[in-house]
């Protein structure tokens, strides 16, 4: 059965190429999953930041950000993720990231920010919490 739609018909229209895609779903009642697609750089980091603020502001105990569809991660995007992890921590929650691509794993590793997140290599594991 399909998940209940989280975006109404008046959800944000498709943007120009290179723009970010963000979509929130609730695969479990206690989980909020933010799926991000596109490139995370200075152009798109504000949009990611907004989506992350909404995610963390929600009541769900399990917060997962699926970065499988992200093809580039700059420090501006990483900074937004780090801030979100700190905000989640304020309410005793971890920020779970699904990371598969080198383009995402590499910046997280070289900046030593792995310990700020709970990293998973697939969505199923991430949703186990």
């Amino acid at each position: 059965m399909a998940e209940p739609a989280t975006q109404g018909p008046d959800a944000s229209p498709p943007r120009t190429a290179g723009a970010l895609g963000t979509e929130v779903s609730h695969p479990r009642p206690d989980a909020a999953l933010l799926a991000v697609t596109g490139e995370l750089d200075t152009l798109t980091a504000p949009e990611l930041d907004t989506a992350l603020r909404e995610l963390v502001a929600g009541p769900h105990p399990l917060l997962v950000v699926d970065l499988t569809g992200v093809t580039f991660l700059a420090s501006s995007g990483l900074a937004a993720l780090i801030q979100a992890a700190h905000r989640a921590e304020d309410s005793d929650r971890a920020l779970h990231l699904v990371v598969t691509a080198r383009a995402v794993r590499r910046p997280i590793e070289i900046t030593g920010s792995e310990q700020l997140f709970t990293l998973h290599s697939d969505i199923t594991t991430a949703l186990r919490g």
Binding site: E39, T42, L43, F72, A74, S75, R102, R106, P107, I110
Partner: peptide
């Protein structure tokens, strides 16, 4: 800022053609 994706794509392409290893390509692009 809208043209930076084009510039980093060129960087990545040059590194790939110069046989950089995958981490080095990724690093140069970033």
């Amino acid at each position: 800022p809208a043209l930076i994706p084009t510039i980093r794509a060129v960087a990545s392409d040059l590194a790939a053609r110069a046989d950089f290893d995958l981490d080095a390509i990724s690093d140069l692009r970033m």
